[in-house]
Structures are given as structure tokens and as C-alpha cells.
């Protein structure tokens, strides 16, 4: 099972990011991972939260433009070369990575990285075949 990521379109004007986090805080939704990609005019905020469906619906009610995407959460050894090893596996399997970012919390001694790839199933297969742990949605939300 994959992890549900929420993408929010943000105009580049002051206070928009604060509006998102305030809304989530009010609804007692916890942010587990986030990243922002931006140009000079707009940005896209990507979130992993403990209650993705609720988060989407409350943000939509507040007028935000939101979409849901499936991503995978991968345990990466927290030592030099750890990420390189995972990327090598994905590269060999011919999996194209759109973007990735790190988790805020930690599951164990391992680091957690969120991958957005074109072929989620293919990526999970390739990683699991090499004994790399890929978290399911419940595990990621529960962190």
C-alpha cells in the first residue's frame, strides 16, 4: 500500500503557507513530512499527514486548490551512502523519480524518504526485492 500525499497550490504571497498550517492545526491534523517546490510566482506544498482525507477536505473548504497523489515512503539507512544505495536500486530498475524529500520524524534508526515516482508498484517491488523497507500508508500516517 502506498502513502497518500497532499499537494497544495500556493501563490507566492505572504501568509499563504501559514494559512495552510493554521487550518491543519485547528483540525488537529499532524504534519509528518513536507516539502515546497517554488518558482518566483507560485509554489506547490507537499504534505504527508496523519489524516490525509480529512486534511484534503478541510483545506478545500478553506478554498485551497488541493490534489492527492500516491507516493512511497522508504526506509533509508542513516549513514553515508544510504540514499545512494536506494537510488541505485531504483535506477537499475529503470524507475524515474519525479522528486523526493525527507520525513520529519524517524521510524527507528533508519531515515525515511518520500519518493514520488512514475511507477510506484515497480519501485516497491524493486526495493523490497533488495530487502529495503517500504512503509505502507498506515505505518506512515501513524508515525
Amino acid at each position: 500500500m502506498k502513502v497518500k500525499q497532499i499537494s497544495v497550490f500556493l501563490e507566492n504571497k505572504s501568509g499563504r503557507l501559514a494559512d495552510v498550517t493554521r487550518t491543519l492545526g485547528r483540525e488537529k491534523i499532524n504534519i509528518r513530512a513536507l516539502s515546497i517546490a517554488d518558482t518566483t510566482d507560485f509554489g506547490i506544498l507537499r504534505l504527508i499527514v496523519n489524516q490525509p482525507e480529512k486534511a484534503s477536505s478541510v483545506l478545500r473548504e478553506e478554498g485551497f486548490m488541493v490534489s492527492e497523489t500516491e507516493v512511497i515512503a522508504v526506509e533509508v539507512a542513516d549513514r553515508p551512502g544510504g540514499l545512494a544505495y536506494v537510488l541505485e536500486i531504483l535506477g537499475e530498475a529503470g524507475i524515474n523519480i519525479e522528486y523526493l524529500y525527507a520525513f520529519i520524524g524517524k521510524a527507528s534508526d533508519e531515515a525515511l524518504v518520500i519518493f514520488r515516482v512514475e511507477d510506484c508498484d515497480g519501485a516497491m517491488c524493486a526495493l523490497r526485492a533488495k530487502n529495503i523497507k517500504v512503509l505502507d500508508g498506515h505505518e506512515a500516517s501513524a508515525l
Binding site: 507560485f42 507537499r46 490534489s67 492527492e68
Partner: peptide, 15 residues
């Protein structure tokens, strides 16, 4: 203004 229904969350799509 963007059309809410067509937002994919992808940066590439917006570009």
C-alpha cells in the same frame, strides 16, 4: 486563475 478540477499536484504540469 487556475481551474481547481484540473490541478494534478505536479509541478511539471503547471509549468
Amino acid at each position: 486563475e487556475l481551474n481547481r478540477e484540473k490541478f494534478t499536484g505536479s509541478f511539471r504540469d503547471l509549468a
